[in-house]
Write a protein that binds this DNA or RNA. Sequence first.
DNA 1: CCTTGCCTTGACGCCGGTGTCAGGGCCTAC
DNA 2: GTAGGCCCTGACACCGGCGTCAAGGCAAGG
Lengths: 120, 120
Amino acid sequence: MLIGELAERAGTSPRTLRYYEEHGLIRPRRDANGYRQYDDGELRVVHEIRTLLADGFGVDDIKPFVACLRAGNSSGHVCPDSADMLRRRLAEVDGFIDQLTAVRERLRTQLQEIKCQMTH
Amino acid sequence: MLIGELAERAGTSPRTLRYYEEHGLIRPRRDANGYRQYDDGELRVVHEIRTLLADGFGVDDIKPFVACLRAGNSSGHVCPDSADMLRRRLAEVDGFIDQLTAVRERLRTQLQEIKCQMTH
DNA sequence: CCTTGCCTTGACGCCGGTGTCAGGGCCTAC
DNA sequence: GTAGGCCCTGACACCGGCGTCAAGGCAAGG
């Protein structure tokens, strides 16, 4: 499978797949003409990568998950390294939610103040 | 008051104040030698700007608040334009919280799956 | 006069995942 | 032969609130 086909099947672009490769997440073989050649299993890997990115991980955080998948595990998050990353990211997300919640409270308070001023 | 003094009193840097000016949020007078000259009221304005930035507004969203303050209002968010911005940002923040909450649920679920696998 | 310390403008760097353009090769169909 | 569609590498653009460096002016004190 060439890069264009994998990109389309994964719902992304060749540029993106080359970027993942550049960061050590994929290692396709090369045809005699230099074209990247992917086998079907890589589709699964790309999906895993995209899911993790959507969950806010950085490309460099994702390596353990890919390694875990390649090691033959049914999912990429069952290995210790992956679990560590999951816990770290969970803590980070909790922090962000707390911050945003505080912001939300401030905004609601300010809007409430406006309403009060209008009635007086 | 020169830029260095205002910066220190506001807990920020001259570079930052010049950046705000560049985006139309502050308009200091100029001394004969070209130095920016601020009067005491600007400290209040800068504090307002920094609070709004901390709440996630962009510099270009902040103009209405500053205009509202300069118009003589006791706070920058009582004017209609400011209130609109507050409502927009509140909706945006709600959206972000929803997204992050969804991410958190996925992470927790995955961590839970790992625990289950370990006991079996 | 010279140093020190403030001020001035202008411009590049950061971060990260991707779009996009440039310049060029391979392969197939006509 | 040539047109079109895929592939290659390399590199700049984006966004946004600054940090930071460069190169230079002004003022005051020794």
